[in-house]
Simulated assay, not measured.
Amino acid sequence: MPRTALTRDDVLDAAAALVRQLGPEALTMRKLAAELGTAVTSIYWHVGNRESLLDELVARTVREMGAIAPTGRGPLDRVLSIARAQRRMLRDRPHLIAMVHERGLTELMFLPAQQALVHELHDAGLRGARAAEALRAIEFHVIGFVLVERNRERSPAQSPAEQDLWDTATAGHDPALARALAAPPDPERLFTTTTRALVGSLLCV
């Protein structure tokens, strides 16, 4: 079968995949051409030089983060869906998000998700300063949670490890608590629990 002609989106998809896996330093036009099985000149023809390519990856990331849409019936579920989507996208794109931040576009990137949150907060009856405080609390929680997750994943091996520190004595003579704290945390469950508690208290539900 004849090979399908290379498109600009093909180049951007491959470049984004390389940055996600290895970081922007690993993205060279030669490596990208090798990944796509094409000539370097073809890459330049589709996306210009490397800086133009990086700029387009940043613009694309901003657009993707802006595509977050709520799901669910009530304000609580819809706010939770926005928070989950935002966390997932931040975790999936750490290098791309860092590139957005370096170009001073972080606030612009977060604006659509924040506007979606504002809509849900208004539907829940929050307006003015109360809505602003709720919005910031949710955003600080989501972004802070992701930062803690990444810090735990990248931290050097701890000695003593967390599971070695918790026993009946350190857990206030609560053996069930000691066992639970010695086990590795479940980030998905923890995020849902903490976000639901936070949003529920903000919406008074």
Rank of each mutant, 00 (worst) to 15 (best):
A98I: 01
A69S: 10
L90E: 03
H95G: 00
E107M: 10
I82K: 08
A69V: 06
G125I: 14
M89D: 09
Q114H: 06
R93H: 11
H122L: 15
V100M: 03
Q115F: 10
D92F: 13
D77C: 08
G128E: 10
G66N: 01
L111S: 14
P75D: 04
M109R: 04
V118W: 13
R127V: 15
L117G: 06
R91H: 02
G104Y: 04
L108H: 09
E107A: 13
V118M: 15
M99S: 02
L117R: 10
H119R: 10
A116E: 11
G104W: 07
G74T: 12
G128C: 11
H95L: 02
R87A: 10
R78K: 00
L90Y: 06
M89Y: 11
A83T: 06
L96G: 00
F110V: 05
R73I: 11
L105A: 08
E107L: 13
P94Y: 04
L76Q: 03
G66M: 04
L111F: 14
I68H: 10
A129R: 11
A83V: 06
R127C: 14
V100Q: 02
E107G: 08
A129S: 05
A129G: 03
A69R: 14
L108K: 15
D123T: 14
H122C: 11
A129E: 12
S81G: 05
Q86Y: 14
P94L: 06
R127M: 15
V100H: 04
D77T: 13
R93W: 09
H119N: 07
A98K: 05
V100F: 00
M89N: 07
D123V: 13
G128N: 10
F110S: 08
H119V: 14
A98E: 01
